Computed example of a mutant assay.
Amino acid sequence: MNFERTSIADVVVVEPKKFGDSRGYFMETFRQVLFAEHVGTFEFVQDNQSFSAEVGTVRGLHFQTEPKSQGKLVRCIAGAILDVAVDIRSGSPTYGAHVAVELTAENGKQLWVPPGFAHGFCTLKPNTEISYKVTDYYSAEHDRGLLWNDPRLGIDWPVDVEKAALSDKDKRQPSLADLGSVFTY
């Protein structure tokens, strides 16, 4: 397994090694001891999976506030996404900055999105599925979001703003300027 720090050091790309032959392939997608050595010690308590039928589906940017903040280890198991993590830790030198990584079923890459970051993605292929581990359980009371296309974030989403498939909730999220302090660096 390869662990690559991104432009925001706390966000890490995890790339499993694939072993293939004429039958297909095998890859180990998670090993706690290696994750702890290269990323940190986190306990994953829930696995989630989502399916998006249309290209240009945007989900996010989502996060949970303390004391139910979540770290996420995201991978694409069918199709492809542009996966995005936005630093929303007040006082962070990278506050408001983001990392965007293409995750596909073929490349097997995963993105570690630590607590204190908003997370979202845009589908690049039809019938895309993602699977992700989280470090705390879902809590509707602590569920929050950030406006996915806030110009201040500078995210180059691969979809026309007018054509993006979004939930009503994601269309109404606050901008970074209106978010306030939710995490401290």
Rank of each mutant, 00 (worst) to 15 (best):
residue 4 E to F: 13
residue 2 N to Q: 14
residue 111 L to F: 11
residue 72 K to S: 06
residue 83 D to S: 09
residue 125 K to W: 05
residue 114 P to Y: 04
residue 18 K to Y: 05
residue 147 L to V: 00
residue 47 D to A: 07
residue 17 K to M: 10
residue 81 I to Q: 02
residue 9 A to V: 13
residue 67 P to Q: 08
residue 2 N to F: 09
residue 109 K to I: 05
residue 159 V to D: 01
residue 98 H to G: 00
residue 74 V to R: 07
residue 127 N to P: 02
residue 48 N to Q: 09
residue 8 I to T: 07
residue 133 K to N: 08
residue 48 N to D: 03
residue 7 S to C: 11
residue 10 D to E: 15
residue 159 V to Q: 01
residue 155 I to L: 03
residue 122 C to M: 14
residue 139 S to M: 00
residue 53 A to L: 10
residue 178 D to L: 12
residue 76 C to V: 06
residue 59 R to I: 07
residue 48 N to L: 04
residue 93 P to T: 12
residue 11 V to Q: 03
residue 19 F to E: 07
residue 75 R to V: 02
residue 74 V to K: 05
residue 70 Q to P: 03
residue 24 G to K: 07
residue 72 K to H: 07
residue 12 V to G: 01
residue 112 W to Y: 14
residue 141 E to T: 13
residue 2 N to M: 08
residue 38 H to A: 01
residue 34 L to I: 08
residue 40 G to I: 10
residue 11 V to F: 10
residue 78 A to S: 14
residue 114 P to W: 02
residue 139 S to C: 01
residue 173 Q to W: 14
residue 99 V to Y: 12
residue 7 S to K: 14
residue 63 F to M: 10
residue 148 W to M: 04
residue 21 D to M: 04
residue 171 K to F: 12
residue 114 P to F: 03
residue 155 I to T: 01
residue 118 A to N: 04
residue 13 V to Q: 12
residue 162 E to H: 12
residue 96 G to R: 06
residue 19 F to I: 06
residue 38 H to P: 00
residue 74 V to F: 14
residue 164 A to V: 10
residue 120 G to V: 06
residue 161 V to Q: 13
residue 29 T to K: 06
residue 29 T to Q: 10
residue 26 F to K: 02
residue 36 A to W: 06
residue 79 G to Y: 04
residue 73 L to P: 02
residue 144 R to W: 08
residue 105 A to S: 15
residue 133 K to W: 00
residue 162 E to S: 15
residue 104 T to H: 10
residue 130 I to H: 01
residue 25 Y to C: 05
residue 172 R to C: 07
residue 147 L to E: 00
residue 181 S to A: 14
residue 124 L to Y: 09
residue 164 A to S: 11
residue 34 L to C: 07
residue 136 D to L: 00
residue 155 I to Y: 00
residue 176 L to A: 05
residue 93 P to W: 12
residue 128 T to R: 01
residue 75 R to L: 03
residue 172 R to K: 15
residue 16 P to Q: 10
residue 77 I to F: 05
residue 155 I to Q: 00
residue 135 T to K: 04
residue 59 R to S: 05
residue 108 G to F: 06
residue 82 L to Y: 04
residue 9 A to D: 15
residue 43 E to G: 10
residue 40 G to F: 09
residue 123 T to K: 03
residue 8 I to C: 07
residue 42 F to N: 02
residue 152 R to Y: 09
residue 13 V to S: 11
residue 19 F to C: 00
residue 81 I to T: 08
residue 132 Y to C: 03
residue 109 K to N: 06
residue 137 Y to R: 09
residue 163 K to I: 06
residue 176 L to N: 05
residue 100 A to H: 06
residue 128 T to G: 01
residue 30 F to P: 06
residue 69 S to F: 04
residue 52 S to M: 01
